[in-house]
Design a protein around this nucleic acid. Structure first.
Lengths: 156, 156
DNA sequence: TTGTTTGCAAACCTTTTGCACGTTA
DNA sequence: TAACGTGCAAAAGGTTTGCAAACAA
């Protein structure tokens, strides 16, 4: 867990309680797990990961917690076009990345680009729309899949 | 239907048959309906629209046709983060737009930006990834929703 | 103690699949 | 006529909701 992520965990717990929410066992586990991620994960990923822990966490609780954290702007929700939502911590610094999605293996790879961010800022000022956030998804073939002949579908 | 869209319909029918597919009743109706759209629609939108016509078109057929058209690069699939896929014609010129999604009313508004396209091209060359396409979604409040008084959450 | 949070099961909604019938080339 | 396309019904995911028990404050 990077320094930024450790900070996110503290930030999340503070925001949660100042918004009048309690710090239940499942919420804490989910926040800790999110803090350890470097990129977006699915609700199912979280549930599976937590299943190995001491207490089982219901999938419904995972979804409810993610919804709450998204409302508080503590996590971002990302649709990579696979029909499955992915979630990741929103760092308080506003620092963020975007995603490359491999059409073949389903892998989701983060990237960032200062030029892109500058362009998005100019764009946000130009449109007749109050832009709160932006998502950029590049779709194609990742390094491994590009070099392979015809790999089967892996992730789902 | 704009000139561009009329051209898309012809293009789609030609591509369809040169790929060895037949021109069934449902396919034709779906292609005509898509040609008349100026922005992305959902499968349910299409089914509902077609229900008013002479023959009912099954929802399964709508999905199968959209999948086929997407394979042939005739339509693009777009995930606006609402858990519902949207589809729109891909113009043969390669000309395309991106989307503003209103968090409040759910409206999806198209926009384009040459600067953004140039940035995306540079980006595609920079990453270790074979980029086939890109999607940009701006989320926030549209003009109408922004002007409505909406007491509640304070902006972050 | 009291209202919130949680896990389970069932409901929901979008999308996919199986299959028999219709249609196209 | 032989495939291919279509509609219906059912299945398959992912996500949401109802509810009683467990829990935080």
């Amino acid at each position: 867990m990077t320094r930024e992520h450790a900070r996110w965990k503290e930030h999340a717990l503070v925001e949660l309680s100042s918004a009048g929410h309690r710090q239940g066992r499942a919420r804490l586990a989910i926040i800790e797990l999110l803090a350890a991620q470097s990129c977006a994960v699915t609700a199912l990923d979280i549930e599976a990961e937590l299943r190995g822990g001491e207490h089982r966490v219901g999938l419904a609780t995972v979804y409810r917690t993610l919804e709450l954290l998204a409302e508080l702007k503590l996590v971002g929700r990302l649709d990579t076009g696979q029909g499955i939502a992915r979630y990741e911590p929103l760092l308080p610094s506003g620092e963020h990345h975007h995603h490359l999605v491999c059409d073949r293996c389903g892998r989701v790879i983060p990237f960032d680009d200062a030029d892109l961010e500058a362009t998005m800022e100019r764009l946000a000022r130009r449109v007749r729309f109050e832009v709160a956030e932006h998502d950029v998804v590049l779709r194609g073939a990742c390094g491994s899949c590009r070099s392979e002949a015809r790999p089967g579908r892996k992730a789902h």
